[in-house]
Write a protein that binds this DNA or RNA. Sequence first.
DNA 1: TTAGGGTTAG
Length: 606
Amino acid sequence: MAFPSARRFKSLPPLTSTAGRGQADERSCLALLQGCESLPKLLQAQAFLLKSGLQANPLVLAKFTSTASSLDAVDAATSLLFHPRATTHLYDDVLFNTVIRSHANAHRPESKQEAIFYYSLMLRGNLHPNKFTFPFLLKACAGLPSAHGIGSQVHASAVKFGFADDSYVQNTLIHMYSSSTTGLDCARKVFDRNPKSSPVTWSAMIAGYVRSGLSNEAVTLFREMQVSRVRADDVVIITVLSACADLGALELARWLGSYVERERIPKSLSLCNALVDALAKCGDIDGAVAFFKRMPERSIVSWTSVIDGLAMHSRGSEAVCVFEAMKDAGVPPDDVTFISVLTACSHAGMVDEGCRYFDSMRSEFGLQPKIEHYGCMVDLFSRAGMVERAVEFVRTMPIEPNPVIWRTLVSACRIHGRLELGESINKQLLDKDPMNSSSYVMLSNVYALTRRWDKKWEIRKAMSKHGIRKVPGCSSVELDGEIYEFIAGDTSHLQYKEIYEMVEEIGRKLKKAGYVPISSEVLLDIDEGDKEDALHWHSEKLAIAFMMLKTPPKTPIRIVKNLRVCADCHLATKFISKVYDREIIVRDRNRFHCFKDGFCSCKDFW
DNA sequence: TTAGGGTTAG
């Protein structure tokens, strides 16, 4: 058989011999390849293989490719395998599986594409795939942006060769299809057809929902799994915990923590990390820190999760302490850690510390700041009211600013009363990024603040011209293990009349206590009385009223929002926390607000 | 040689 040459050959030293040298050389080659993890070692082995003429020995080649852990090593190994002078009649399915697996496991989309290329090479050489081939191949498909399209072709191939019913193939099919939003229905079809006796099948489908942002569906499926009495393992728990983190489902996250203890599920490092992350993102930062402290082993992910959690809760100085402890423990921070540390400084108004840490990325750790780190710095200056400095920072930064950075600046201008500057930046932003609804909403806010209703009307027209709609505000709460969602002005809830009456009652009590609604938050040119009404029905107030009705006095109320808290809801919630003596913990789009005794943990700084 | 997961600016 004749294989076309692979596309990316490294230049290889000239061959001194192509003849096999017998068993002794084969054994020494295998010994050399044992534990051959690093690239220099692999290249050394590669040279030895060529020298001894063993580069076409399938046993040696399979070993060679399977030891290749880094991308460069995979390249080096395959270039040797498909060397023009390699003796191709020795190629077999096992060898190709090894090559496909190495490429499927490499973290780079091009490598996944390569895996598929080698499969086509295999078929062109009239080699038949075996049952191991498809799980590798489908995993490669899952990593591609066009997973659904290519994956279904591979699926058809698995059917043709009679391996589609294998349980490993079925589970990887679920994973592959659910890796793209368009394939979620296909994944569910495969899932529904399966016996579902293994936790692998369940976690593949549950994770698919989480990846598509359907965490509620993920939790529902986990409950079905409980009913069907399949024992969850650590991977299932990790997946469901990530759904909890997304939803802010604290009760469920805590329940999973105790389930792990009760069922003696192995507390792997990843599982512990997932629990720390979920507890922090669900608002139980003290629980997260306590669990983190008890962990027998900690990775960079554990440290970063805890720093990030503290940052979200405005506990900047504690976050910085943990960061220092991490360095003392000999764990060097990476770029993700720095995003968390800089966020911590930003949310706690620690400008000097933030600048120092930003500089230390390069000077102490040799890390090149990315656009996200520049974004953190713009946010750091902006929140602290240093608008000029933020603008200057953007002007001189060595990377092209992206829309996120421009939006951060616009928002700073609005909060700190620099309306003209904000307006001009916002207009540029709309030119560059005309399809983003938040740019329109922000500019519309500026016009509302300056009472330029005609301009606001133009914005509304521009939005409808582009077919853009404002994302509706949504607040959710967890009660007895159920998640209840509220959307502004929503009347679909069964008890909506009671809820609306409660909102009215709260409003009356608040006014007696001195609350004056902030009506500039209403983006309509209606009279003041109607504006107050519109504010009443913000989703956050509906959620609070619902929990007031449903829980005993003094029970803390936890709310998860999809947008940032508006100024009026922020003020009203402060009053509610005092008047009703309730702790109210709100997770907004990017941080936590803990309202207690009339104050918020963000110190009105968000 | 086989499957499922895992911290990221606003």
